[in-house]
Each structure stands twice: as structure tokens, then as C-alpha cells.
Design a binder for these strands. Structure first.
Lengths: 214, 214
DNA sequence: CCAAAAGTGTTCATCGTACACCCATGT
DNA sequence: ACATGGGTGTACGATGAACACTTTTGG
């Protein structure tokens, strides 16, 4: 997320087929490599990052999805903190961040993959604190709110939002402020693993946010 | 679901490797066949049924999961109405229904697949009326309750359960009764597609049931 | 007539929602 | 002093949770 917009990393293909067209990041699984390992390797190659939220998304296996060979793609779903990527490194690999609100046509069924991923994000972000994987380590409440507004394309009420988020008791309040976006400054918070473990244990409720999807 | 127990269809392998051991149903994707089509084909072969709830579950791709060749398995998740299967047909194929509460060791990582599937069922049944895919076309409210109790391994309160289910307004009440389980008899209901479409439109709420998972 | 399952209503606590004003500070 | 974003509280309605008795009927 960046500038209040959810963004996705697209790649200009520098090889055939479909050279020059846009696609998602991808690659081939090696002989003695698990799918997960392959996904991490490919992502590391492009981003230079190791600690990344990555989960399997869906496997796309229509017989004619790739006009050339028969290819089955096991799609993965990664959440990156945009600030952690070296912009030059990204550009050198022919990649760029594209707002999800205006994704151009991509090769093969990659637009479909994006749809599935967005849908997954919107469902999961309600239920697990994965949204925070898109923010810096330290963030302000207005930032989280902006994040959720970007994910759900919807304005949220500040008072209710803060109440709900704080009530989860999974964040740790720091006594420093981020003054970049206002004179008053907003307190910084950090996700706290132990508190979250506790949250999962006690109560075991569901729903971080109550937002209708779709 | 059968006799208040959630059951899974297991297969005794009649070919190497691991001949004689138990596994899930499986097969190979053909050259010009999509993954979904393959799943339907394989399921039809074993069950003789066409109209089946089937969704992709997860793709298992550890390098060493099959001791022989490198095999990547795209697992699918099907919900069958146990009454619709011909018991002889099932037995002839070396298959049998096993209660999920006592699943024996299966080959390779199939036990893991069952775990993932059960987890998926428990999450999805809260949120979509897929539980009904496990019941006959016509069913009684006590039957649905028994079903949910089997899925979540938990006793539910009759009054609250009925209230919640009926309030969804997705069922159609028939004026016939099923008297097999009591002298009084319980009214039969049927899932109603239009009502459900309406339910999805209006309100767009979430959660069929509010039950904590895990 | 009785056992066994089906069916029904109310109270209470919790939580989501709507909504408007004061606070801190850099310029 | 003021503009800008950060921060706070309350009242209302909806919904989940707990809980006990009446109804029907085949044997």
C-alpha cells in the first residue's frame, strides 16, 4: 500500500512468448524443490527480501491457458511492505507498482489471478491481521485505517475503527509519534506477537473487522 | 454425513506403490484436460455421480512427498450426499466411508490433506450453506442441527439454532413430515436457490452461524 | 398413558453503527 | 491565530447466548 492505494507488482516480460507484455511474477519449480520453496526463491530474486508473507493462492490448470505448452501454474499470494523494496532494484528488473484500481490487461489468465488474490485479501484481512504485512513495522492508527479503506474501497468511521482495532489488543503502543502527516503527530503502534497469541487463545472470537465483502 | 458422523471416502489402493494401503481418491490429469475436469472425471468414475459440490483445495508439492517419482497433487474437496451413492458400487471399487473422528494412517501426505479439507469445511460451512450438500434434497431441522454438530463436534442449542437458520430465509418449508426419527415427525425443508440469491443480495451479511473455529 | 423427539419465547449482555466536538502543534 | 489532522464518548438497535416447558403421536 502506498499513497492510500493498494498496489501490485507487475513485470514486463523480457522473454518469449509474449515478450514486452505485462504479467505477474513467475518462474518454474526446480527438480528437487517444493512449491513453497520455489515461490520464495522467485520472490527473493525479484525483491531481495526474505521475510515475506507468502501463501498458496490457487492452481490454474485450464488446458489452453498458455497458448504455447501446457502449463499448470500454482499461484502464490505475497504481501510486501512497499517501503522495504529498493526502487532501483525493482526498476532494474522491469517491474513496477500498479494500483489495483487500474490494472492493465495482463498475459494469459493473470488478470483472473489478480481477481482471486484480491478477493482472498479482502476476506482474509477481515479475519486475520495480515493487513499489517502491508505496512511498515511501526505505523499509526490513521495509517491502518487508510490501509483498510484502500483494501475495501470504502470510507470507515474513525471512532468506530479505532475502537474496534484497539479492542483487539494485539497492538503495542509506542510513545513516539509520527509527525509526517500532521503537526500534532499520530502515535506509533507495532504489532505484538504475544498479544496476538493471547488474542487467539482467549475468546477465540472471529472477525477483526465486520465488513461485508462482495 | 451419516449416523450423526461426518464421514470421508477412503480407498484401498489396488496398484503399486503402496498397494493395499489406504488413500484418498486420486488420479492423473490428462493431456488436454483442465484440473477441474479431471477432478470431476475421477470422482464420477468412483461414485457414478455427476452433480457434485467440488472445489479446489490446495496443491501439495513437497519434493519428497511421494517416495517414488516427483508428484505434485492438486487436491480437490468434494461434498457428497452419502445416500446417493450406491453402496455396492462403492464397495466394488474398494472404497469405504470412514468417520473423520477415526481416520487411520493414509499413504504419503494424505492425512495432511484430510486435515486441510476438514479445516476448510469448518470455515466454509459457517459462511456458505455448503453443509446442505451433505444432506439429502429434503431434510428436517433436527437433521441440519445434527449435521452442524458433527462438523463442529459441539452440541448446539435447539432454540437458538432453529432461530438462526430460519432467520436466514434460505429454506423452503414443505408440508410433509419425516417420521423416521420420531412419532411426532419433523417437518421437511428444502434449500431454495432463489431465496438464497435474495439473501446474498439483500443485507449481504456474513456468517450463517457464529461458531468459533479452531 | 407414556416415552421420545419436535417445537416454541424471553431476558440479558455484547457489539456494531451513527454521529460531533475538542486537542495539539507548526507555520 | 488558525488550519490541519489526531483523538475521544454516547445512545440505539441488532444479534448471539442462556435457558425450560408444551406438543404430538406410535406403541
Amino acid at each position: 500500500v502506498d499513497e492510500g492505494q493498494l498496489k501490485i507488482l507487475l513485470l514486463e516480460r523480457d522473454f518469449e512468448p509474449a515478450k514486452g507484455q505485462l504479467s505477474l511474477i513467475g518462474g518454474f519449480v526446480q527438480d528437487q524443490e517444493s512449491l513453497d520453496a520455489a515461490a520464495y526463491r522467485i520472490l527473493y530474486h525479484l525483491t531481495g527480501l526474505r521475510e515475506i508473507f507468502l501463501e498458496q493462492l490457487h492452481t490454474f490448470g485450464e488446458a489452453d491457458r498458455d497458448p504455447g505448452d501446457r502449463v499448470i501454474s500454482v499461484a502464490y499470494f505475497a504481501l510486501l511492505k512497499i517501503q522495504e523494496l529498493d526502487p532501483d532494484h525493482v526498476r532494474d528488473h522491469g517491474a513496477y507498482w500498479c494500483p489495483v484500481s487500474s490494472i492493465p490487461p495482463l498475459i494469459f489468465d493473470h488478470n483472473r489471478m489478480v481477481e482471486v488474490a484480491l478477493r482472498r485479501l479482502r476476506i482474509q484481512a477481515k479475519v486475520r491481521p495480515i493487513g499489517l504485512k502491508l505496512l511498515p513495522e511501526e505505523f499509526t492508527l490513521p495509517q491502518i485505517q487508510e490501509l483498510f479503506e484502500a483494501i475495501y474501497q470504502r470510507k470507515l468511521d474513525d471512532r468506530n475503527f479505532r475502537k474496534k482495532i484497539l479492542q483487539l489488543e494485539i497492538l503495542e503502543k509506542l510513545n513516539r509519534k509520527d509527525k509526517r502527516s500532521s503537526k500534532k503527530g499520530a502515535f506509533l503502534y507495532r504489532f505484538n506477537e504475544e498479544k496476538y497469541a493471547n488474542y487467539l487463545k482467549n475468546g477465540d472470537r472471529f472477525e477483526m473487522l465486520t465488513i461485508d465483502v462482495l
